[in-house]
Design a protein around this nucleic acid. Sequence first.
RNA 1: GCGGAGUUAGUUUAGUCUGGUAUGACGUCAGCUUCCCAAGCUGAAGGCCGCGGGUUCAAAUCCCGCACUCCGCACCA
Length: 485
Amino acid sequence: MDYKAVMKLALERGFYFPSCEVYGDAHAGFWEYGPSGVSLKNKFLELWRRELIRRDGMLEIDGSQIMSRSVFEASGHMGNFADPIIKCTKCNSTFRADRTIFDITKIEIPENADLNEFDNAITQNNIKCPKCKGDFDKTKKFNMMFKIGIGPEDEEAYLRPETCQSIFVDFPRLFKTMRGKLPLGIAQVGKSFRNEIAPRQSLLRLREFYQAEIEVFCNPSKLSETYRFSEVQDTQIRVQTDAEPISMTCKEAVELGIVPNRFVAYYLGILMEFYEKTGIDITKSRFRKLGDKEKAFYAEVAFDFEVETTIGWLELVACNYRSDYDLSSHAKKSKEKFEVMDNDEKILPHVFEISMGIDRSLYTILEHSLKNDKEHERTVLSLKPYLSPIHVGILSLVKKDGLKEKTDEIFLNIKRKYDAFLDHSGAIGRRYRRLDEIGAPFAVTIDHQTLEDNTVTIRKRDSMEQSRISISEIDSILSESVAFP
RNA sequence: GCGGAGUUAGUUUAGUCUGGUAUGACGUCAGCUUCCCAAGCUGAAGGCCGCGGGUUCAAAUCCCGCACUCCGCACCA
């Protein structure tokens, strides 16, 4: 189904909706998760923890969202996260100064150059607005970070534009106190903030968004060591260098030199295995190797994990080999020591990053899972059972004759263990449809026979099959079916 | 940020040209029906008609500004 259908589902069934919508001064780029969205997000993150954090023995932290100026001076965001922009005095169109100059004159000026350099190039080459031939105003820097004031003196600080800086800053303490050993993954889930010029498409481009980031610290001279590579060597990944994505195993990707080493290939492999379990159609996925122009300012080698949707390819994860860029900058700026011992060798670790966009991933899961079942005239959200906001609907066939009470009793017995939803009202078919639409994999229905022999019918969402089971079996069937893989 | 199209109940939508206080569907709730796949019947709730200003006796409707949503461009470490 398409973006519009997902949006309708999100609004009608409480997955997500615009923030502060009752007020006229609400800003674009802010959305809230409703109950179904939160439940899906929590389960998605639980899967992420199982498939990446626990599997690899990583450490998880939870850092501050507001960080001091020094952090971003060291990280490079003060200088590099800002784009040089020029604005036409006639039509108000805004352009990137460096790109506009390059397009017209083929003169390359680095984006972090002095602003005068751009102004000079524009004057000397008589560059005019490509749209209306108007004159450009002086070059300005637009920084995407939200600046905020701390305390009564409004001291300068910033909302983090990525979660990972706390991981770098905390690395020396974590390595010491947690008895770290390279390679060591440190992870964090949380909000990041970017002042996008034009946020759009709900969860796909937000000003306040969730990231789940992993920074793997490693010894750069040991990237070809096997570690746990054998676990993923036969895992299929789809890799795109220039033309079409090609399916290959992780082992082949390293042998062909497409992925630089086993270390990186291992993480691409476990990431792929994770996404396969989210229910996203991975035949529509690719690891796209980025060229020099596209890479982030800190990245040496970069792969974007992208998935095709009805509105095009979406970047869900950025995988960057950041070398010692971050640790050495923080070491220099803070004058703290960031080197650690790897066996008997003292080194400054390098970093491989797996930076996941949670909101975009959730959108993609919804889009790939939402099906229109024309034969049965229903909309089905065929989520993996372990990701479904509701595991099971508990329904009374009719309210009378003590069926309501019996239903309540069954609900009471399972509601602490499962996400169960109790429903007595309306036609039974309609209640099944409603559960189908929010992705509940099971419905348990209590009828007159239940009172006689303690059996109920259990209905499966995808096949609509029903079978008669005893009440005592509900728990074991659910616990097996909705368990994480 | 530029250009275009929009914004009416939880969702979808008529009405806007031609000004007279909002229509239908779905959904929700209650009751009847006691029923296993969106059944039927009865009833009800639900609208600052995006926000602000102007014109007018009177504005969902005309005019201006703003916000938001979508599309295209630009942007997206």
